[in-house]
């Protein structure tokens, strides 16, 4: 797990079984701009799967970006999932009051 967003190798176009994008360990304010860029970049994918298992720090700006990304995907009728969310991630989302909405996309 790293502090930067790992870029995933472009897969074959149209492949639905793409590997999840691992979210970085630290999702604090300093990572927000980069997270947004990454989310915009993968928005073009046919489906978006985020692996939140390694998240050890969470922040409001990053939660906002993930919510916006989820809504964008929904608007575009694309599958969006957050998988294996760490306890810390779940707690933060709950504390912020976003659990109800994000639960739709969490596994």
């Amino acid at each position: 797990m790293t502090d930067t967003i790992p870029t995933t190798e472009p897969d074959d176009a149209g492949d639905m079984q793409r590997a999840p994008h691992a979210l970085p360990q630290m999702l604090d304010l300093t990572q927000a701009a980069q997270l947004r860029e990454e989310m915009i970049r993968i928005a073009a994918d046919s489906s978006i799967v985020l692996d939140a298992s390694g998240v050890e720090r969470m922040s409001t700006p990053c939660a906002q970006i993930l919510l916006a990304a989820a809504r964008s995907a929904q608007a575009a009728n694309k599958p969006f999932r957050i998988t294996q969310a760490s306890e810390l991630f779940r707690t933060a989302i709950t504390d912020l009051g976003l659990r109800y909405e994000l639960d739709k996309w969490m596994e």
């Binding site: 947004r36 915009i40 928005a43 700006p61 906002q64 970006i65 608007a75 912020l96």
Partner: peptide, 21 residues
């Protein structure tokens, strides 16, 4: 807790460090 996220813009228009909630 009740959150109002209605001001959250689309991802493309979003300032990553601005408060929307």
């Amino acid at each position: 807790t009740e959150v109002d996220s209605s001001s959250l813009p689309a991802l493309a228009a979003l300032d990553p460090e601005a408060a929307y909630l």
